[in-house]
Design a protein around this nucleic acid. Structure first.
Lengths: 156, 156
DNA sequence: TGACTCATGTCAGCATTCTGACATACTCTC
DNA sequence: GAGAGTATGTCAGAATGCTGACATGAGTCA
């Protein structure tokens, strides 16, 4: 059947395009990470830890856009495989600061280069000005969606 | 711990912002669809069928960015609940053209209004020119990621 | 001090999506 | 007509993420 005609409203929707772009990016990342035996969430967690050492489970979950329960099972696997380490007890409060091991850091180096290649390809047709435009526009969308002040349904 | 400082590179990455925006949009959609007893994929499928009646399972899957296996289980549930209908046999080939029932159409009307509200909120801070800019930039990112010609790793 | 609120880590169960596999149907080529 | 190649629908099992729930630690306030 025809797949390219009858584009009524979907392709003109910012939301649909956003989902399409996100899906394409995720697929491309999976394609390059799979040969390395790593998933996207896997990589996201390690990258977060490289850039902000000592993040807790909950903080990592927020940074990777998953629940803290999901991040917890992921961290247990990463710890079992020797990519990250956590103290047995919290020095203060309940948060356990997580850190990359040397093994985790070296694995991340390879993955990071692969992912950087994907992001470069995605931005290949955009010049510096357009990239900044895209960043700014996306950031404003996030703010509009997240900021409670702009949510008429949540005045409380 | 601090969550707002030490923003080294993550927030300057288009890919990360794209994921953040997509996640925020999905969360907002889930929030308004949940009271209606509908999931995002649920809604996506119905919306696709409303705008392009007669799409097959595989075509719906591509439009909703899931595998055709996932869409198949979703369609079976939607059919069981009386939201969509499919012929028992294919008139030609194997593709089964799917159509909304009256019940499905009425349910979609409510959900569609709710989702439109979310998208309006997302774009609330953007004027017409900026929305068009965002659409164009996202579309170019999708092309760059999807077009095999721009993928140096897949010349074959 | 005690009650309340909030954030965190973690366990268990459920839902959703994916990968792998198979059979069927059309198209193109020889 | 026979074969290869591609697209489709579908089943089964595995992986992943989520919701619900509970206990712990810290801060707030009366």
């Amino acid at each position: 059947m025809s797949q390219e005609d009858a584009q009524i409203e979907l392709e003109t929707s910012v939301g649909y395009l956003l989902k399409e772009a996100s899906s394409a990016l995720r697929s491309a990342m999976e394609a390059v990470l799979r040969p390395l035996g790593m998933s996207v969430t896997h990589y996201s967690c390690l990258e977060l830890l490289a850039q902000r050492p000592g993040l807790s489970n909950s903080e990592l979950a927020r940074g990777a856009f998953v629940t803290r329960q999901s991040m917890n099972v992921l961290l247990q696997a990463l710890e079992r495989d020797g990519f990250v380490s956590r103290p047995d007890q919290a020095a203060e409060g309940r948060a356990l600061p997580t850190r990359l091991t040397e093994l985790g850091r070296s694995r991340l180096t390879v993955a990071s280069a692969a992912v950087r290649g994907v992001e470069d390809r995605m931005r290949s047709g955009l010049d510096a000005v357009e990239r900044e435009q895209l960043r700014a526009l996306l950031a404003r969308c996030v703010t509009a969606l997240t900021d409670p002040a702009s949510d008429p349904a949540a005045p409380r």
